[in-house]
Structures are given as C-alpha cells and as structure tokens.
Design a protein around this nucleic acid. Structure first.
Lengths: 189, 189
DNA sequence: TCAAAATGAATCTAAATAGATTCAAAAGAT
DNA sequence: ATCTTTTGAATCTATTTAGATTCATTTTGA
C-alpha cells in the first residue's frame, strides 16, 4: 500500500539540504548562490526551487534551526531534570545538530522574520543555569547569563575546533562538559 | 620643532580605521564596501583610497592583526614567564585588541597572502599550554591543542558576549581567566 | 590668512550576482 | 516500456556592486 502520509514538517532530503546549507553558509558567508549550491552538491536551479531568494533561505534555515533547538531544549528537561543530567543531555543533543546550532548562533540577527527562536533559546538557558545555581551545582559568582555565554562559547568553539581537526570527534561531548564544568587547571583532589 | 618622524608601520588614524573595519567586517561579513565605509563613518571614496580592493583590505587587516598579535604573544613571554602570569598577560593583551583578535579568528582563512600569522599564533599557544602542562599547572588529560581551542573559545565568546551586553565589561578579564581555569562548577574548597 | 592635503558626494563603466525561465537529460514510479 | 517528476545546464534581464575618477568643500598646517 505504502500510504504516503503528508510529511509533518520537512522530509529527509530537505533536512539534508538544510544541514549542508547551514554548514556552507557559516564556512563561506560571502558565497554566491551559485557557489553555495555547488558547495552542497546541487545545481543553482534546484537551490532556486528550494528557496527563491537568499533571504528566504536564511529565514527557512533560521526557522528550522529554531524548531530543532526547541526540541533540544525540551528534550533536555531543563526545568525538571537534575542539572548535571540536563547539561549532559543538552551537550549531546546540540552535538547531534551542530551545524544548525552554529548556524543559528551566526545568523539569528539576519533572520528577517521575528521568529527569533534564539531569544527563547538563551532565555531558557539563563533560567536553567539560574536553577542550577540555586540547586548548588553551578558557581554563584558568575551571573546566569555569564554561564550561558561560557557554555555556548565552549560548545560552538569546540564544534568548530573539531571541524578544523584540532580536537578529536571521539570524546568531544565529554571534553565540552569537562572544560565547561571543571576548567583547565590541574585538579587538586 | 616637532620633527615628524617616519611612522614605523601605520599611523594612529590608520589604526583607528583598521580596528573599526575589523569590527564591521565581523558584524556584517556581507556588507558592501559602501555599507562598510558608512559603518565606520567614512566615505566610500576615502575607503577606496585606504585600500583599492576588498581583498587588499582583508589582506591589510590580516597582516596588521597578525603583527599586533605577534606583539601580544611576545609581550606575554609565553616561553619563560610563570604559566599563570603569562596567561593573565595573554588575556589582558588580547582584550586590549579584541577587534583584531576576533577579526583574525574569522578571516585568517580568507587572507590571500600566506602571511597566516594565525598558524604561528596557535602554534605558539600550543607550545605554551604544553609547557604549562609539563609545569603541572594545566590538566594533562586534555591535549595542548585542546587547551588552546578552549582558551580561544572562551576568549572570543566572551568578547562577543560583552559586545552584545550579556556580560559586563568590568571584570571581563577575570571572568575569562576563571572560566578557563576553574570552570563553572561550584568550587569545593 | 593662505596654500596644500584630505575628504565626501556624485558619476561612470565593467563585472558580478540575483532572480527567473527554458529545455533536454536523468531518475523514479507504474 | 512508458509516463511522470526531478534535476542540471544554459540563458536572459535587471539589479547590485566593485573599482575608478572628478570636482567642490572642508580640514590642516605653515
């Protein structure tokens, strides 16, 4: 029978293109549409059929990234799970969607539509880190937004370092977690 | 008398322009030369007299940033000073030249000339962190390049966070140092 | 105050790019 | 095997941008 049900959001091929585009747009922000399409292995015409204008492309990517990161936030149970468990889940989920995470970090200001999932995104993180502070898990001599920024910096920076081959893919999540939580000073226990 | 001696490299006004351009190019990588010039408060014609082509602009900025960061590396005495002293000096100097630091991080791959001060830059940092590990200061369960990447991530990320108003300018150097060295977990004294 | 230098606004041409369309070939389904 | 859909290459026009120049105005310095 194979009833082709209506795809809920975007089908697999579309998502493949979106991820590839996110990566290409971050690596070469000034690439032309021609260069972009070649970079992800499709023709300019197909890219045009996918999105008619560059702005529509950015908006679509921003919307999609926002949706995915909303799921990331939700699945981490930031408001209920034990902070360190939520943090680990947060890192793992972001790692699964590195390209979209990095894209949204670089392009959230460029999305014309006020989707701005980013705003909700870092608000959710701020609230999470505040809760973690109140639970005695995170340092209280750094503001919650400060913790959010340190977290995102470590996340994005090490995703990028892995792309450049500076750190290994294996153990990346653990590296991020430990760098964020424990720092780089020789431990003294 | 006021003997106007020949400027060694670039005069003060040129440096002001270079810093402003570095910031504008990072904030809006796709800005046209018209938009760039307006963003830094000069006319398109003056920008043209400053550099005739966009590529020449990138190269000039990359060269200048490389020179400045070389001085930063040198003045920190990475190969002789006590590691934690050198680290503190490193943060302070980079903070003084945030715009150029961030610019070089974003654009080192775009510079046509193989100046690539970046290569020397992170090699110097790798060597520094290795020395710090051997001196028992930094963790040895993270590779030296890993330490470099965590350091740069924290540096760049928090510079950016300060620009966006997410963390305060006052105490920024201390925040970077502590986030990098100690992490964000509640300290156990 | 006056001459020299620097700047900005406007203009111009050539090149690059965006956006849109056509058509033939390839892929996929029946 | 045939029909349908998807894709890619090429083409086309309009717009944008880069690069370059001119000239009036402002700024600077002697």
């Amino acid at each position: 029978m194979s009833m082709t049900s209506t795809p809920p959001t975007t089908d697999a091929e579309d998502r493949r293109i979106l991820v590839a585009l996110a990566l290409a747009l971050v690596e070469q922000p000034r690439a032309s549409l021609q260069e972009l399409s070649r970079a992800i292995g499709i023709s300019k015409a197909t890219l045009y059929r996918f999105c008619r204008t560059r702005q529509a492309l950015i908006d679509r990517l921003a919307t999609h990234s926002g949706q995915v990161l909303d799921e990331v936030i939700t699945s981490a149970r930031l408001d209920s799970a034990p902070p360190l468990d939520a943090l680990r889940q947060l890192i793992a989920s972001h790692l699964e969607h590195r390209e979209l995470t990095v894209f949204l970090m670089y392009y959230w200001k460029d999305a014309s539509t006020d989707i701005c999932a980013h705003c909700e995104w870092d608000k959710a993180l701020d609230a999470f880190f505040l809760r973690g502070q109140q639970a005695g898990v995170f340092r209280i001599d750094i503001s919650a937004p400060g913790l959010t920024e340190i977290f995102i910096s470590t996340l994005i920076g090490l995703f990028d370092a892995e792309r450049r081959g500076r750190v290994a893919r294996v153990g990346l999540a653990a590296l991020i977690e430990s760098a964020f939580l424990d720092g780089t000073r020789t431990q003294k226990p």
